[in-house]
Design a protein around this nucleic acid. Structure first.
Lengths: 168, 168
DNA sequence: GCCTATTCGTTTCATCTGAAACGATTTCAC
DNA sequence: GTGAAATCGTTTCAGATGAAACGAATAGGC
């Protein structure tokens, strides 16, 4: 496989006529970005699974409930990238593990008031601690200037997606 | 039932979230990175789906076969992020669409020689063109210096994952 | 040659997934 | 008030998923 060559990559990304499949797939920025994000997510999840024994969905939901308690199923869905079906199933699992309680809201009996149990709070602290450890270790390779620059670049690209979604 | 202490619990949660939870979930770099990559991938896939009518798996496999033809199922799996089961099912769909042929390799009758049909080659050009259009439009918001910088940052973080996987 | 181990691709099977349908409840219009 | 519409969370159902089992073919040791 070819050595990394940022300048050539940039040129390739901008020059349609010279593109072949290989370059598009393996050297284009979107591909690198996607692969990095996926790898990072998987590595972090494996780490958290090992330390607190929860799946991605589980610790995400637990984190939200622990932080904003009490929360309804819908509110958890809105604050995460999970849909309500998935949240419902995840909270069900958390309840069965004795980490979360889900009683009907007396104010509106359609809703469920999700709260952490004592055991849930202990898990919550474990999740928060693991996340903090991993995330800070992750970005520690970057000095503060690089980190600021990265955040700005990501934000720019995020806005770019808005534009492209409108255009195409 | 466990004895709850709402006031103390609320204070604890709020305090913890201010220190860690909230920042970790919504403001941390890994989260931004993941969200951007996911959004970008979905937007691009929707665009390609609209232009050439293929799913992500389908155009990825088509792209690899078109670029390295002939390729076996295993080779496609190795060059992509898909496992062999997934590749097998995807090629099956591509064959049924008349875009790919899969004859047994006469040299080694366990293997399948995957090649593009005439229609497959037309699709291939459509995929390449769509990818080039999207990818170059995507990174066009960044000047060449920013792009180079971004690529370097991504590479640094990718290596960082290697380190963290070894450590934890 | 012969027998075992390995490789390749497909199929099986138990699980996961989310759109749509659903019952229960609340809100709104009248 | 009464009935229609909307909201909330769960369940259903048809399709997707991948680890493991599988048959077919080849490679390697003797």
């Amino acid at each position: 496989m070819n050595a990394l060559n940022p300048q050539r990559d940039a040129a390739l990304a901008a020059d349609t006529s010279r593109l072949l499949g290989l370059e598009v797939l393996e050297h284009a920025v979107p591909y690198k970005l996607y692969k990095l994000a996926l790898r990072g997510s998987r590595a972090k999840s494996a780490y958290i699974k090992k330390r607190v024994g929860l799946s991605i969905d589980e610790w995400k939901v637990l984190l939200l409930i622990g932080t904003f308690s009490p929360l309804s199923t819908k509110e958890v869905a809105e604050r995460s990238t999970l849909d309500k079906v998935r949240v419902s199933r995840t909270t069900d699992r958390l309840v069965r593990q004795g980490l979360v309680t889900g009683h009907r809201d007396p104010e509106d009996r359609r809703k469920v008031e999700l709260k952490l149990t004592r055991a849930g709070k202990a898990k919550y602290r474990g999740v928060v601690d693991s996340l903090a450890t991993w995330d800070s270790a992750f970005v520690q390779v970057l000095d503060s200037k690089s980190l600021t620059s990265l955040i700005k670049l990501l934000q720019t690209l995020d806005q770019r997606i808005d534009e492209l979604e409108r255009r195409y």
